[in-house]
């Protein structure tokens, strides 16, 4: 056989025409490795939960009431019941409305700041100041101004999420290729044409990246926001389970909050990839 007569070296261990194939196989291997590692990490998290509540804690201790062996069945019941979907829908609606307000205000302001050095210099200190105040500190004020109900929650979510949207919009405007603007000048474009045909499509990637950050923030502050003066939503439901001493349900709700947050972020990332490939 000719194989035996050839000297053994790295170069003839692999077929010569295979580099492209190899690269693809490597990519696939790297991806599945990531997936396996990710699942492993989640498994460790679950195991730690179980260890801390079922194994290490004494059965009659308080910690044992938060065990996954009780929470997972409770989760099943919640998912099939009618209460939880209602609370989830209410919470999602609040996040969406709050985000919509933040986008409606943040994008135009961001464009203004990105376009005008003057506006930037005038607003930067004020915005940096406001940005660093936890939105939750406004909660009492918001309730006093907007009354109890959905309005203060919309306000708080919008207030918390407008900053990343505004800042990345402004960064997007500054990153526009000056030649595109020269092009629109040479076409005698109106202001509106420049805005709608060059600026807005040109900053879409930045805006979506800002929106992705905003979704994360909105979801995180939603729950504490819903702990004051409302009677529906996931934050409300957490306190409700506590008051009913329904600890497995409480843990199940926490799980659901995490899963929905994870899903929202994946969705946002997919949107960025779909509408602004390579821009973010």
């Amino acid at each position: 056989m000719s194989v035996q007569s050839e000297p053994l070296s790295a170069s003839n261990l692999a077929p010569a025409s295979a580099p492209a194939l190899n690269a693809r196989a490597n990519l696939l291997r790297a991806r599945s490795l990531r997936l396996v590692l990710g699942l492993l990490g989640l498994g460790v998290l679950l195991a730690a939960w179980w260890l801390g509540t079922d194994v290490l804690a004494r059965p009659e201790s308080f910690a044992a009431r938060f065990s996954p062996t009780a929470a997972l069945p409770a989760l099943g019941e919640l998912l099939t019941g009618s209460d939880l979907p209602l609370h989830v829908m209410v919470s999602l609606r609040r996040v969406l409305v709050g985000l919509a307000i933040a986008l409606a205000l943040g994008v135009p302001i961001g464009i203004l700041i990105g376009t005008s050095r003057f506006a930037e210099a005038a607003t930067t200190p004020a915005f940096q100041f406001l940005r660093m105040i936890s939105p939750l500190s406004w909660m009492p004020v918001a309730v006093m101004v907007f009354g109890v109900g959905d309005a203060p929650i919309y306000f708080l979510i919008a207030f918390a999420t407008i900053w990343p949207i505004m800042l990345s919009t402004a960064a997007g405007v500054r990153a526009l290729d000056p030649q595109w603007l020269l092009l629109s000048r040479s076409l005698a474009a109106t202001r509106w044409e420049t805005l709608s045909r060059i600026v807005i499509p040109g900053i879409l990637g930045h805006v979506l990246t800002g929106a992705r950050l905003a979704i994360g923030i909105a979801w995180i502050i939603l729950v504490p926001c819903e702990m004051l003066g409302v009677s529906a939503g996931l934050g409300y439901f957490i306190l409700d389970t506590r008051d009913r001493l329904a600890y497995p349900e409480l843990m199940a709700t926490i799980l659901i909050i995490g899963v929905i947050g994870f899903a929202l972020d994946s969705l946002a990332r997919a949107l960025v990839g779909r509408f602004a490939p390579g821009q973010a």
Binding site: Q179, L183, L187, A188, A189, T190, E193, P201, G202
Partner: peptide, 23 residues
């Protein structure tokens, strides 16, 4: 630099501006 708009395909880039109000 060509300065093509990356969100438009070639045909739309060539067409760019033909429909502007002042053209």
């Amino acid at each position: 630099n060509p300065g093509l708009l990356p969100w438009l395909d070639l045909e739309k880039n060539v067409a760019f501006g033909l429909d502007f109000a002042r053209q």
